[in-house]
Amino acid sequence: MTIKIITDSAADLSKELLQTYDIEMIPLRVYDEQENEFLDGVTLDPIDLLRNMREGKVYKTSLPSLETIQEVFTTYAKHDVTCIYLAFSSELSGTYQSSVLVGEEVKETYPNFSLDIIDTKCASTGQGLVVLEAAKMAKDGATKEEILNRIAFMTKHMEHIFTVADLQYLVRGGRVSKVAGFIGGLLNIKPILNVEDGKLIPLEKIRGRKKVFQRIVDIMETRGKDLKNQTIGISHGDDLESVNILTEMITEKFGCKVFVVNSIGAAVGAHAGPGTLAIFFLNEV
């Protein structure tokens, strides 16, 4: 039985990975200050967005259009393809809720359509790592139940540890409070945040970017398990220099060998901003 893995662009997976593992991607929408609409990863390159943000341009985001979701689901329903859709955290976007509504509508026309919609409670490459694992399992012939069980485990145990260059981007998007944003901009203090049950939670504030790198590694050591044999996810906001530094530190400390490194997408980048650096790993394996 063929099982199709579907996700949205908040998973921040490269076009190469999407193609290699035959993953269907539904793009979120991004709008500039003139209300021009772009499709994340399709008609707007995330690096262009991040560089524009450095110049002061402001973007806002929206979930995928209902028509796009319906078109994707209907395409597979017509051909009786079993689908698993791994959605962006419901605490950060309305994408999951909308996809559930659309899925119910499509099933009214195609009652035998096998579609499971999962609220990953993850974001960016944290979501992407779950999607990749599911797609690899589907490609290797795993059953739907086996894939769903693995998804449930990974979404429960996926750590998201990240820092941003400027909290004001998250403040503007309503993702953290204005007070946290104000403090974060003082005296070169850099915030470390994570995602807990799908929500953004500030962990601590560190003075100086170099100390942030070391603290991220320390948190990995405390929370991670068998990191050497994991695939470690890293996403960044147009900052490969920091990626290289952190990758070297992680490799030296834990002996990690497999990394999935991607730029944050335009939808995530519009809120996190340039200079974002995020690490994803499992706290149980």
Rank of each mutant, 00 (worst) to 15 (best):
M1F: 04
T2P: 09
K4R: 15
I5W: 14
T7A: 05
A11E: 00
K15C: 00
K15E: 06
L17E: 12
L17I: 15
L18M: 12
Y21T: 02
L28W: 01
R29K: 12
V30N: 00
D32P: 02
E33R: 13
E37P: 08
E37I: 09
G41K: 00
L44R: 00
L44I: 11
I47D: 09
L50F: 15
N52V: 03
M53S: 12
E55G: 04
K57V: 11
L66M: 14
E71D: 12
V72H: 02
C83V: 10
F88G: 00
F88H: 04
F88R: 01
F88I: 05
S90Q: 10
E91R: 15
L92R: 01
S93H: 11
S93L: 05
S93A: 15
T95P: 03
Y96R: 01
Q97G: 09
S98C: 01
S98R: 10
G103H: 03
K107N: 02
E108R: 15
P111N: 07
P111I: 01
F113C: 12
F113M: 11
I117Y: 06
I118K: 08
I118N: 10
D119C: 09
T120A: 02
K121N: 12
A123S: 15
S124N: 10
Q127A: 06
Q127N: 13
Q127M: 14
L129T: 11
V130L: 09
A135L: 10
K136I: 13
M137G: 08
M137C: 02
D140R: 02
G141V: 00
A142L: 01
A142G: 05
E145K: 10
E146S: 02
I151A: 10
I151C: 09
A152I: 03
H157P: 08
E159V: 09
H160F: 07
V164E: 09
D166M: 07
D166E: 14
L170R: 07
V171Y: 05
V171A: 04
R175T: 13
S177C: 14
K178M: 11
A180K: 09
G185E: 11
G185L: 12
G185R: 14
L187R: 06
N188T: 05
P191T: 10
I192M: 04
I192T: 05
N194Y: 13
L203S: 12
E204N: 08
R207D: 03
K210Y: 13
K210N: 15
K211I: 04
V212W: 08
V212Q: 12
F213I: 03
V217N: 07
I219G: 02
M220E: 12
G224V: 09
L227Q: 06
K228L: 04
T231V: 15
T231W: 05
E241R: 13
E241I: 13
L246R: 11
T247C: 09
E248L: 10
I250D: 01
T251P: 00
E252M: 04
E252V: 08
K253Y: 06
K257Q: 14
V258R: 15
F259L: 06
V260Y: 09
A266V: 00
A267D: 00
A270T: 04
A270V: 06
G273Y: 05
P274Y: 00
T276C: 12
A278S: 13
F280Q: 04
F281A: 11
L282T: 04
E284H: 07
